[in-house]
Every structure is written in structure tokens, then in C-alpha cells.
Amino acid sequence: MDETFINSYRSPQLSKNWLLNLNPLNKINIYIALGLITLFFQYWQVNVVITLVFILLAVAAGSFKKFIGPFLKLGLVIGPFFFIVRAIFWPGENMIFNYGIINITQEGIDLGIQYATIMLVVCGILVLCTVTIKAEDLTYSLEKIGVPHNVSFMILSSLQLIIDLKDKTKVIMDSQRSRGIETEGNVFVRIKAFVPVLSPLFLGAISGAEEKTIAMDARAFSSANPNTHLRFLRPTPALEKILVILVDILILGLIILGVIL
């Protein structure tokens, strides 16, 4: 066996990007700290700036293409939904349009914009975590701070299950298409084609969970002995710790400023 391949498992898995090399918990810390600003500054402009910061972080991580697609899909669905709900049904003094239960007020529009941009920030956090943090790195980091290995395995399995269901759905839809079943078209055609997929999809998920349980038992997953890992992370450098602390202090200062204002 190639000695280089063997040695690759003896050293921490690093990339050439500084942001991707940060500890997963530190990255989550930074993302959530930035997101907390939206709770204390009631200005939609602030939410837009934070969203742009997330986009810049995705660019810095070299993951802009992976980030922007899911971000736009989530943001263009969730953001307008919250805007419409708040803009149409929120009471206010400055009435713009009224018909039945529909009350469009200036206050509702302002609140709708605020909530829509907050949802953009939330979507940015979720997508940025997905594209810059590997699930196995996250669970390894959790184990290093004392989280039981069975809990970290449940987190990893849950994240992996989403990916597996997506892949299985694609395979089943391709099989349906090869049989001449129409799967493309308007919304009703897609729903009609998707409903028969649910049964084999969930049966396959249940079967896969059972097979995974048997495989883990065969590998002494429940053993009390310390676990070994094929993949591990570098020790957190002092400079990275200082960076996280400075970011937290800066965000805390901005939050205090927001409360005062």
C-alpha cells in the first residue's frame, strides 16, 4: 500500500483555505454571533449587511457556488413568505389597502421587510454551516469537548440521512422516468409523480437504519473503551482562539450598543 496514503491518516486533514481549517465549533460560534446582531438592531439594513458578510465568508472559503444556489432557493421561499404574512395581516395606523381580512399598512410592510431580512440571515447561517463544515469534523469536535460518542453518531447519522434520502429520491425518480412515467411539468404533475416515491423512500430509510445498527453493533459501537478515529483535526492554534475571542467581544459590544439605542 502507498506509504503516502497511510501517512495521510496520521496527520490532521487540512485544506489550503484558512476558513475551512478553522475548528467547526469556532466557525459555528462566529456565524451565530453574527446572526445575534439581528435580534438587537431592529433595522433591515443591518440584516442585509450581515447577509453580505456571510456571502463574503463563502467567497473567502472558496465555496461561493455551493453557497449561493441553496441560499437563494431558501431565501426566495422563506423571505417572501414572512414578508407577505406580516405585510398583509399586521395592524397599523397608516392604512395603505384594506379588503376583508387583508390589511396592508405601512407598519406591516416595515415589519415584513424586517422579518424577511432576518430570515435571509438565518438561511445564510444554515447554508454557510453546510458548505464550510464537514459533518464528521463537527462530530469529532463535539467528542473532543466531552459529548458522548453515541450522541455525536446520532447527529452524524441525522445529517447523513438527509443526503441519503436526497440521493435515493433522485434514483427512484430516474427509475420512474425510465418506465415512461411523467415526472416533469407543472406543480401538480410533480406532486403526482412524487407521491408514489414516498413509500419506497421511507421503507428504504427504515431498512438502511436497521442495517446501520447491525453494522455498528458488529463493530463494538457500544463498547466502553475509547474510540479510534481515521480522521482528526489539528489542535486549535492560539491565533485562532484569539480571533474567536475578538469576534465575540466585538459582537457583544455591538449587541450592548443595540440595546442602548
Rank of each mutant, 00 (worst) to 15 (best):
V247K: 08
S223Y: 06
I256L: 14
Y99K: 08
S157I: 08
S175P: 06
E143Y: 04
A205F: 10
V59A: 13
R190Y: 03
I245A: 14
I118L: 08
V127C: 06
I50Y: 04
L36V: 01
I162N: 11
L161K: 04
A215M: 03
L20T: 01
N150P: 01
P200Y: 00
D248A: 09
T169I: 02
P24F: 01
A135R: 10
D164V: 02
L239N: 15
N186K: 14
L252V: 11
T132R: 00
I102P: 15
A193D: 11
R219K: 13
L56A: 15
L201I: 00
I125N: 14
W44D: 05
D217M: 11
L261H: 12
R231A: 04
K66S: 10
F83G: 14
K65C: 02
I102L: 12
N17G: 08
T130A: 09
E184G: 02
A218L: 12
V189C: 04
I255Q: 14
I37C: 02
G62A: 04
R177W: 11
K192T: 09
K166F: 11
V189S: 07
E3N: 12
Q13K: 01
I102V: 14
L239K: 13
E143A: 13
V244L: 05
N150D: 10
D2Q: 08
N103V: 08
V195T: 12
N21S: 09
L161S: 11
N225T: 13
I101M: 11
V59S: 06
Y43K: 12
F153Y: 15
G75S: 12
T130F: 04
R179L: 07
L159M: 12
L25D: 00
M173Y: 08
I162H: 02
K73W: 10
V121G: 05
P70N: 04
P148Q: 01
Y140I: 05
I96G: 06
L76S: 09
E210D: 14
N94R: 07
G185P: 15
N47A: 03
I50V: 13
V53H: 04
N150K: 09
T51H: 02
G92P: 08
F82R: 02
K27N: 02
Q42I: 14
P148G: 10
Y140G: 11
P91N: 01
T130C: 00
T132I: 02
V147E: 05
Q42R: 03
V197T: 11
L20N: 12
L56M: 06
E3H: 09
F41K: 06
S207M: 07
G185Q: 09
T130H: 05
I172A: 03
A218R: 06
I251Y: 05
E93W: 02
L126K: 12
V197P: 06
N21A: 06
I28Q: 05
V197E: 01
